[in-house]
Simulated scan of single mutants.
Amino acid sequence: MRDLKEYTIPFIGLKLGEHHFDFIVTNKFFEHFEYDEFINTDIKLDVLLNKKTTLLEFTLDFKGDVGVHCDVTNEPFQQPVEGNYHFIVKFGEEFDDENEDLLIIPHGSYEVNIQQFIYESIILSLPTRRVHPGIENGTLKSDILDKLEELSVKAQNEDIESQEGTDPRWDSLKKLLNDK
């Protein structure tokens, strides 16, 4: 996979100390990684680079919204996403990215690409189950929700009990529970 040039930070001419970089992450960024679960993306990313004599410290702070589909109803909604990630870049004999919080780049390097760290930190900050906020507060009206409610086990059990009444065998078992 090729590197995206806009997420490559040249550090060779920078003075020691803190440096800020601002990015806007859009769907084009995620398409580069062949990740197509987002409808639209608008994430503001602030990168803080603290350059020291023997290493580089990066802190990624991001906040924004991604358009996703609800896992229950498949209705689209805007999922807020925010978080931060801290990692260190050191210099060594050869490139090594085995450790998730430490990147080793060869001596003589003059720039570092942080696109993989951005991608992973945003994806991992999303909830594993994406539920439309309208479902949680009861304001979402959807045909799928109506059908799910109709087909739920609880609704079917209530229909059976209302049609037949309760089974007398269960009544005698319930008495055993109450006789404690």
Results as ranks from 00 to 15, higher is better:
D36W: 06
E37I: 10
F38G: 00
I39W: 02
I39G: 02
N40C: 05
N40D: 09
T41Q: 02
T41A: 01
K44Y: 06
K44G: 07
K44E: 06
K44T: 04
L45C: 03
D46F: 02
D46Q: 12
V47N: 03
V47G: 03
V47L: 09
N50T: 15
N50R: 13
K51R: 13
T53G: 07
T54Q: 12
L55E: 14
L56P: 01
L56C: 05
E57M: 08
F58V: 01
F58W: 06
T59Y: 03
T59F: 01
T59Q: 11
L60Q: 02
L60K: 01
F62I: 03
F62R: 02
G64S: 08
D65R: 11
H69N: 14
H69M: 12
H69V: 07
C70S: 02
C70N: 01
T73C: 13
T73S: 13
T73E: 04
N74M: 15
E75V: 10
P76R: 05
P76Q: 06
P80M: 15
P80Q: 15
P80I: 13
V81T: 05
V81Y: 01
E82W: 12
N84E: 11
Y85L: 09
Y85P: 10
F87H: 04
I88W: 06
I88H: 06
I88C: 05
F91L: 05
F91Y: 15
G92Q: 10
G92M: 08
E94C: 08
F95T: 14
F95P: 05
F95A: 13
D96V: 15
D96M: 14
D96K: 15
E98W: 09
E98L: 12
E98T: 14
N99F: 07
E100S: 14
E100T: 12
E100M: 10
E100Y: 12
L103A: 09
I104A: 04
I105L: 09
H107R: 13
H107I: 08
G108M: 06
G108E: 08
S109N: 13
Y110S: 09
Y110P: 00
Y110I: 10
E111C: 11
E111F: 12
E111Q: 14
V112D: 01
V112P: 00
N113M: 04
N113K: 06
I114R: 02
Q115E: 15
Q116E: 10
Y119F: 10
Y119I: 06
I122Q: 00
I123L: 13
I123W: 01
L124K: 10
S125F: 04
S125D: 11
S125R: 07
L126P: 06
P127C: 03
P127I: 01
T128M: 12
R129F: 09
H132F: 04
H132D: 08
P133I: 02
G134D: 05
G134Q: 03
G134C: 08
E136T: 12
N137R: 08
G138R: 00
G138W: 01
G138N: 03
